[in-house]
Design a protein around this nucleic acid. Sequence first.
DNA 1: GTGAAAGCGCTAACAG
DNA 2: CTGTTAGCGCTTTCAC
Lengths: 327, 327
Amino acid sequence: MRDVAEAAGVSIKTVSRVVNNQGEIREETRQRVLIAINKLGYRPSKVARALVTRRTDTIGLIFGDIANPYHAEVARGVLDTAKEENLEIFVCNTDGNPEAEKRALTSFLDHNVDGAIVFPIFANYEWIKKYIHPVLPLVLINCNMAPQPRLGIVNTNLSQGAKLAVDYLIEKGHRHIGMLAGDVAPKETIRRVQGYKASLEAKGLVYRDEIVLTGGPIIEFGFIGANQLLTEYPEITAIFCYNDLIAMGANQACKKLGKRVPQDCAILGYDDNKFSGFVNPALTTVHVDKYQIGAKAAKLMIDVMNNPEKEYSPIHLDVHLIIRESA
Amino acid sequence: MRDVAEAAGVSIKTVSRVVNNQGEIREETRQRVLIAINKLGYRPSKVARALVTRRTDTIGLIFGDIANPYHAEVARGVLDTAKEENLEIFVCNTDGNPEAEKRALTSFLDHNVDGAIVFPIFANYEWIKKYIHPVLPLVLINCNMAPQPRLGIVNTNLSQGAKLAVDYLIEKGHRHIGMLAGDVAPKETIRRVQGYKASLEAKGLVYRDEIVLTGGPIIEFGFIGANQLLTEYPEITAIFCYNDLIAMGANQACKKLGKRVPQDCAILGYDDNKFSGFVNPALTTVHVDKYQIGAKAAKLMIDVMNNPEKEYSPIHLDVHLIIRESA
DNA sequence: GTGAAAGCGCTAACAG
DNA sequence: CTGTTAGCGCTTTCAC
């Protein structure tokens, strides 16, 4: 920067002004500076700037697993939006592990990110409220915290989605519907389970805790879980899965057990990820606009960062059922 | 930091020494400092440190598209490895656009990343050599640059993979094998095409340029491309695809055209992504260890960063054929 | 073993 | 319209 100033025959501050185009500058001076910048290939250091402005033009993104297409598509939405705004994105996986989430958030703080977009783990809610939110603007996805300054919320209607799914299964005549739930939050708190329960009860069916299994949101759990469910409770004729990955695993389990899908056992997924229409049988699932979750979260994050006083009401994204072959 | 120093009754420098545990420090002093740090909840600012050390503990990752499971799994490998080393990762998509790659690299430079892992776009090779590599340690994936200091290379044997695939198709009796190639590099430079060609020629079949179509590495191109190939060249009985996404699209095209896979048209993919075994029909494909690409690239990146003088020879990952249903 | 002073590259406040 | 000075939070000489 000093070199540029010298080359242009102006002060260092003038260079700064040109770079940030702030303040009035005589056009001729400005041109001289611009030429010097070009000649020297000068690029301002974001690090040095950050030290004084407290802005790094960086935001953190934390979710379960980038290798899950659900998160990957969300990431894509965030990344595209961030690019437009010249923000860089740090990415971190937690695999649903609260400690990993804590470490990620702490590390982001150390790096002075301007904000973080998080799919929060229930067990950390209080910790986040206490230690992170006071010092870092946050956008939380699918989280029921109260609106407040420096906090953005993006929600998809989880319990409604589950209700849609289970209503459909009941309508199709299923009376014993197992569930393969995720394990990211305690069973009682998962809104998908609430929706499942609500649907059951609305139709006069009993909710049975023992046919709701929890496990990681991965194919492997779908396989193991469906296997267990169908073996131990032969009355089950349908399984509602926490996500499409689990549903794919459940598909495989049925194949292994010689059960035809959907005739012997219907399988219903959640997320409608990129591949759900291609697997065999194609998944009937709850469609979620993953790209929009990411894009809206990023936009909201930027707003929240720029308006630290303002309170933003939660953004809501709707879901709907996609009927394919598996149910 | 000053506060900590005061609270502990030592100088600022001593705090720095404790934090970085460097130099000899009397145990008692050290404890006093540690206590003060804990009490005040002090965390050193990576930004401030970076300004003087020129290390940000940050590396950039650039590839085509995070929503492609191939890249997502690579990312997972990078991320896991980085976490162990306390490095944060910036992620950026290019969609194969050279300008996007340039912008990403430049932005990483502005942010003072310690290094970048890139799936480079051929069109930018010279630019990268000239403007980026001199100022930024790089690890390049599937790139045939000569080994040199501050440069790491991770290669999977692209042309061999393609040869494996096409050999298999020929063995199965196919004589007219179309190819749906990617468009990330000019057609002639794609090593997958080289392998395809090599295999053909080794078996005495002619390479026909017109049945090698190029397009984006996405499902949509697979659909369009296969449709075109099968319609215009009815003699084609097998299609070798640049990746599994394209293969999935080709699968769909066959379905639409009423062609059975593999009886009427065999389809062979590349990458063996997470879902390739689940789609209908399950894809026969070339298996690549994506997680290892990421993990090895990250480890190599760290080595390269720490040994700027040393020359690292390329890391090589093998591929093999996975035979499922589609061919 | 420990501390004082200088400086990383930039912006903010205040002059002029 | 432009320049001078100070300082962001840390590490690095170099003394003591």
